[in-house]
């Protein structure tokens, strides 16, 4: 059915991974974090606070199935079964519908905790650009949130907006960032990041003779500006880290760096995992505190 629609440029790659250096049987606590977002779902298993396995997939039409799919995907390359995991924490937009979750924690707390783990304790400002919202978070050296705001009023300037744009312009989502710099001169940002308006503005610019790369540059720049205004509201403090899928888009992150004058930290972890990693770490902390299972 999808064959006659041609390639779907927005499709990013789903992935799963297992840490070959860990024998889960030796771990005291196995904890799981399930982050069901509006666009992507991640499941992470940690063995005593070390990343053991993960699965990262697109969210399907319902949260329960998406959570289970992500978890099965994470466990696929392991010999671990779900029942061996001591504690699951659900987070993200669909967290109330994660069937295996012993408890839920908001994505705000989880992203700060996850960023602390992925980027180190120096992180003070965390930006998460999700599929449909933008979160600006400040935290202390333990990953505890000190100040946050989330804008989920509309999907302007979010991950889903970028997907729509890559599809519209026929540029694979992974190439958008690099291509947006292949311009002779940086064009002015599009006037709106609203997905609907930006789409018609882009079509208009193409008709005026703009190159595809220039339109990409104009959209990435507008997105960076929108994100920057939200970050300013919580206050920007070094060090700074970006989580979520947009962290992989240099077209946005480099322009944001220019606006902020701060270099974002780098990590070897997949940036989309921050919420799920944070959730698994909360699970571990609750296990260690001896909190009983809650449903």
């Amino acid at each position: 059915m999808s064959d006659d629609k041609g390639p779907e440029f927005w499709r990013w790659t789903e992935s799963n991974w297992v840490n070959p250096d860990i024998r889960w049987q030796e771990a005291q606590f196995l904890t799981g974090g399930i982050d069901v977002g509006s666009v992507s779902s991640q499941a992470v298993i940690m063995a005593d606070g070390v990343l053991y396995a993960y699965g990262n997939r697109r969210t399907g039409s319902d949260s329960q199935t998406s959570a289970q799919d992500a978890l099965n995907f994470a466990l696929e390359k392991t010999d671990l079964i779900q029942e061996e995991v001591h504690y699951f924490i659900g987070t993200g937009y669909g967290r109330v519908n994660v069937p295996m979750a012993d408890r839920t924690v908001t994505e705000i707390a989880c992203h700060a905790k996850g960023a602390n783990f992925m980027y180190g304790p120096a992180v003070r400002t965390v930006l998460d650009v999700g599929g449909q919202d933008i979160k600006a978070i400040r935290c202390d050296d333990t990953g505890k949130v000190t100040n946050f705001l989330m804008n989920d009023k509309c999907a302007a300037g979010t991950g889903r907006g970028m997907e729509v744009f890559s599809d519209l312009l026929g540029v694979p989502i992974g190439d958008v960032g690099a291509r947006s710099f292949e311009v002779d001169k940086e064009p002015p940002p599009v006037s709106s990041t609203c997905v609907v308006y930006a789409k018609s503005e882009a079509t208009d610019l193409l008709r005026k003779g703009w190159a595809v790369n220039e339109v990409l540059a104009a959209y990435c720049a507008a997105m960076a500006e929108r994100i920057y205004s939200l970050l300013e509201r919580v206050g920007i403090e070094r060090e700074f880290a970006v989580t979520g899928g947009i962290a992989k888009n240099i077209g946005v992150t480099r322009r944001l760096r220019k606006l902020m004058g701060i270099e974002p930290l780098k990590t070897t972890y997949d940036t989309q995992l921050a919420g799920a990693i944070g959730a698994a770490l909360f699970g571990l902390a609750l296990c260690r505190k001896g909190k009983s299972r809650k449903t």
């Binding site: 000190t146 100040n147 946050f148 705001l149 804008n151 509309c154 919580v234």
Partner: peptide, 16 residues
């Protein structure tokens, strides 16, 4: 922790 709820759009920023 300062927890801000609300949104910002073209007309301004509205947070409690």
């Amino acid at each position: 922790m300062l927890a801000s709820y609300g949104y910002s759009d073209g007309s301004g920023a509205y947070f409690i």
